[in-house]
Simulated scan of single mutants.
Amino acid sequence: MKPTFQGNPVSLAGNILNIGDSAPEITLPSKDLSDVKVGGASGKYQIINVVPSLDTGVCAMQTKKFNTEAAKLQNAQVFVISMDLPFAQGRFCSTEGIENLSVLSDFRSKEFGKKYGLLIDDSALRGLLTRAVIIVDPQGKIIYQEVVSEITTEPNYQAVLDLF
């Protein structure tokens, strides 16, 4: 499925992973510049929220919603990944009270976007990540994935939460 931005199709670099695939382990900087691993086997469920930029209303809403829900989840790590610089992510988290999830940046090498097939390759959003939610099981397999069809809309929160 090819996502759209304001109704216009966008191309993604790489191949989107599928349910049942192994989730590549990627090391990304967090808001304090420490390295955090996402994907791979971690012994916990990983809910990976992918957003273009925390500076947009929909991305901010998605992050706030999962921050609230993350506090209720057992045996799960919740991540938000964007291309925002870690400094901007830190400011966003401070301003919005985001404390229950890890905010990570793919700005250095875009490795996450390329390996997960979520890097926008054209349009005005070229170089950003498309909106998606991925759940990785404790053994490192993808058990849920939603690449949101229209980048400007929110994901299906209930479908994710129903898995827990």
Rank of each mutant, 00 (worst) to 15 (best):
I134G: 01
N15F: 11
V38Y: 05
P9M: 05
Y45M: 10
V103I: 15
G140C: 03
G90C: 02
L118H: 04
I120N: 04
D84M: 08
L125H: 00
S102E: 10
A23N: 07
S149W: 05
R108D: 07
V36M: 05
A70H: 05
I26C: 09
P86N: 12
L17S: 07
N18W: 10
A70R: 03
N75R: 11
C93M: 08
D162K: 13
G39D: 02
C59M: 09
P29N: 09
T130H: 04
M1H: 08
V147R: 02
P29M: 02
L104E: 03
Q145T: 13
P155I: 03
E25R: 15
S30W: 03
Q89M: 11
R91C: 03
D35R: 11
D121E: 15
N75H: 11
P86S: 06
G39M: 02
G7K: 12
A124F: 07
R126L: 10
S109V: 07
L161N: 13
V36F: 09
T27L: 13
V78R: 04
Q145S: 13
G117P: 10
E25D: 11
I120A: 03
I120F: 07
D35N: 15
D21I: 08
Y45G: 02
T152Q: 08
C59P: 01
C59H: 02
D162V: 11
Q6T: 05
V80K: 00
L128I: 01
K72R: 15
S102N: 06
V80Q: 06
R91G: 02
V133L: 03
G97R: 01
I98W: 01
N8G: 03
Q158V: 12
L73S: 06
L12P: 00
T56A: 12
K44V: 13
F79W: 00
R91A: 11
K64F: 04
S22W: 02
K37F: 06
A60N: 15
K65P: 08
A23D: 10
S53R: 03
V103D: 01
E111Q: 14
K110M: 09
K65Q: 15
P9Q: 08
N67G: 11
Y144K: 03
E150I: 06
Q74A: 12
L73F: 14
E69R: 03
V103M: 12
R108A: 11
A124W: 08
K110H: 14
N8E: 08
V147W: 01
R108P: 00
D84T: 00
S22D: 07
I19W: 07
P138T: 10
I47F: 12
G113R: 01
F5W: 11
G40T: 13
P9L: 12
K2M: 08
S42L: 06
S149I: 09
P3G: 08
P29D: 06
